[in-house]
Amino acid sequence: MDVSREIILGAIWETLYMVSIGLFFGATLGLILGITLVVTRKGHILENRWVFGIVNPIVNIFRSIPFIILLVAIIPFTRLIVGTAIGTTAAIVPLVLHIGPYISRLIENSLLEVDEGIIEAAKAMGATPWQIIRKFLIPEAFPSLILSVTTATIGLIGATAMAGAVGGGGLGDVAITYGYQRFDEMTILVTVILLVAFVQLIQTIGNRLERHFRHSS
């Protein structure tokens, strides 16, 4: 293996950095969009044709652009937000725009699973729309939301591999530049094993949390 320990450790750090910050902003964006997609749809608590009619296609557009294209296409926007278009931090901007809409669809599905009767009971109690979202929809969907975010996190790890295109670094980048392009099988093996371990760990944590919060069978 031609790659030093420092490079691998640095790459692990970069991956963790991109995934955690990307997930934080991506999940926030996804939650806002996901809730919007649910409550503004026809017959729901804040039915609004215009908002739904705008948000829905925007989410579809972002979901259909391949990440590597998105990464390059939004360079001016990235520069506007973080001041540069190159580096690990710069990679986070396209990561958020990529994963946010994806998370919003997962969250939309989770929230739609909540029994309509629960919302009816909330309305009968005189709950405000905001209370219905915060005290009824989100708590009832919470275990399912955890699984959604787990799935999204793993998708995010996959996407970070392409962050190398804008100098983002990370384990995937090491695998491509040191392993794939230099025919260093050992480096590929090590980075892939690390990524597999990473994914396993996150899925396990997600499943455990889900079980902890689920009080129904």
């Binding site: 029994d115 009767g117 629960i118 009816e120 009971a121 009968a124 109690m125 005189g126 709950a127 209370q131 005290k135 009824f136 708590p139 009832e140 919470f142 275990p143 919060f213 009080h215 129904s216």
Partner: peptide, 30 residues
Amino acid sequence: EKKNIGMIFQHFNLLSSKTVFDNVAMPLTL
């Protein structure tokens, strides 16, 4: 006004994520 009108349902419509106490407390919490 809805606080003067209680309602019960065929399928109960209770929150599975909350305990009996928290379910009953909900209208007051709101």
